[in-house]
Design a protein around this nucleic acid. Sequence first.
DNA 1: GAGCTGTTCTTTTTT
DNA 2: AGAACAGCTC
Length: 801
Amino acid sequence: MTEHKNDSRAGRGRLNRYQLEAVLDDSPACVVNACVGSGKTTVLIEKIIYLHEEKKVPLENMVVLTFTNKAAGEITERLHTREPGIRQEQTECFGTFHSVAMRLLKNYLPVEQAGWNWEFTVMDPDEETDLAMDIIGERGLKVKYKNRLKKRLEQEYQGWIAGKEESRYKDDLFRLYPILEEEKKRQNKMSFSDLLRVSTELLLAGTERMQGMSGADAVKTDGMSGTGKEEPGKEELGKEEPEEKLFHPQWIIVDEVQDSDAMQMDFLAALTEYSVPYGGARLFAVGDPNQVIYSWRGTGENMFFLLKHRFGAKELTLPVNYRSGGAILEAAGRFRQFGDEIRSSRDMGDLITVKNHYDPFQEAEYLAQRIVQLHGEGKAYGDIAVFYRLQKQSEMLEKTFARHGIPYELSVKRTLKDIPVLNWLIKVLRFSVSPEDEQTGSGVLCDGRYGEKYTRKKAQKIIREQVHGAAPLYDRMAGFREWADRNAGADQTEFPREIFEYLGLREALHPTSAEYEEEERLVLDFLGQMCRIICAAPDKAGEGETFSADMENAGRDVSIPSRIREYLNRSALYGMKIDAGECQTTPVKEDIDTVKLMTLHASKGLEFDTVFIIGVNQGLIPLRCRSYEQEEEERRLFFVGMTRAKNELELSWYTSPGEPGVLGEYSRYLKMIPDRLLRWDGRRTEEGKRENLQQMRRMVQERIRKKDDAEKNLQKNTAGADRGGKKDRESDSLQTHANAEAEANEEMETGQGQPELVIRVRHRKYGEGVLVMQDEMNIEAEFPGYGRKKFLKSFGDLEFL
DNA sequence: GAGCTGTTCTTTTTT
DNA sequence: AGAACAGCTC
């Protein structure tokens, strides 16, 4: 399902010239603008293999960064397919930004200089929010929108880091951050953003100090060895053989770079800076500015161009799409905003079907019948996917598909945290191996179901003052590390059971309860999986890695409690996924042929033979937007969805959506697709066409208003003036209005006038630029720092100068 | 703490 | 457009 299409093309000989150029490129910084379905992962893999085998760059000296665990998994998996001999410890720095940052902090960076100890644990956003809530209560801080605290903590973090005085809500949030940080240091744990921020800071600090020193001295004393408390004599020794276990990035390779945020960009900058004394690492990043669909959780800037700018990177392109039929590709191209036309490697293929249904129920019924039909014609369920804009749209599909007996799979992430008994067990283990983590410890004791039913205060007192004899569970957790060390040599197959007995979990799980057997099985499965992984025998020569091999190399303690801690840390970063293969918490689903149901967002990175996008109604696709940037993102989202389809794409809308805010007319996005690419199945009403005209009229009017505003602002003020306040907008000058309308009409009729002179334009976000191209629908301009950008004429985003 | 007015967000989701 | 929340008054 993932982008494996190029497996058949494996090997450098099968690359097209653009792909080959990217693989061979040797610039200090290179960013590859990879169009959708252009084989970007293949390029990444071939690049890594080329560097390794022909340029003799050790894999250990490559940092390969991805945004998601899924992408990281795909890269290592495909690398293994191409080169089965690769051992896991060689790809230590292959992973998500966060997991690589954690590795650096654990093994190479002097984390104690930042106020943590190398045995730190990783906390997830829920825990951080809980801790923040506790602090707010204890210190009597005034924080608004506590129900959205989790979101606020993440979103406003950047602002606090940047040194802003106060939250935009004018409350105590920015006073909370430093207290929260102190508390996290005290309990020796890091949030996800701490991992990135602290590693960035330490990399930069290391670079600075190194600049004042020379070569090997700098290397050894800068904490690269890890313990950070060496005696002078040892340091001398270090000079002799320091290189082996150090962190020497030669290549930094980044996947889906358009998805990274400001902190990740800073991390990249710090990595390259850090590498300068070692000869400087080269940066190779791949991404697609047209596939930015998560900007709402990061900054508004397009990171693809930001990166290009910041690192002065050479830009290469992968312009050929190997996935979709010509009609699908051309239609989708209408929603792209950057770059030249995508080149298709295929013929026109099937047209895109557009269908109208009465309501979501009828739509689901139709889909069910159609899917049964397709399956009858020999199509696998797994080749079919249905995409929608909102999560709740899946309900109707689920009910209907279940009724028709169609096997389907909903893409929702289930984590271990969703299973209460495992959620509690993980806390027990975490406190057992990290007793400074008071929050987790008291959480265990307070738990209403499995804990010892202490009040929060009482539990905190026991933990803070280390009161023995009051809570048996506390006593056992406090003694766990000593117990585990003593039992380290014990029979591994018995170990899970022994942990279970030692911690007294039988009593905690209430042996008489109805769920006991199931819960005991879950707990033993989890412990079993954990022990298998952390106890992987070090003596199995040739089989490669042991758990924590990297830490052992770095001279860290790898006792059993230490390994458990790192196992839990990694699980936290991997979202505590339920691994169907290993842990029998869910039935193994992998081999079942199912139709995939998912949001447009979740479809990114996947491909299917047949794709249905439902609810292509005005007000849903695009969803009601507040800002111009948001509307652009909706367009990219639709683009991503359409380009998942290889052969068949069907778009449908309903007359009676039954949701407030969703109109009973088809999306104007359908009007952006040339009619010759569409097959309107069923009625495309006359009202639809009239609506179309009215829509165009409205857009022109809108445009006129914007133009008016802009003109007024220009007349009234110097640059940087407040843009069109509400009052200005209401008082229209009739004269300008008439002029602008005439102008707008003229422009619409003249159509494809090719610019012969340099025509300068202005955009509210990209600033001043030069007109590059325009046709009856689109207008393209080039802006310094952003590159070429395409706009829809009818939106009137560009102002002519 | 009920009742009022004004403000802010609503969807998408990863680590 | 409507829900949810903040902060004010009584």
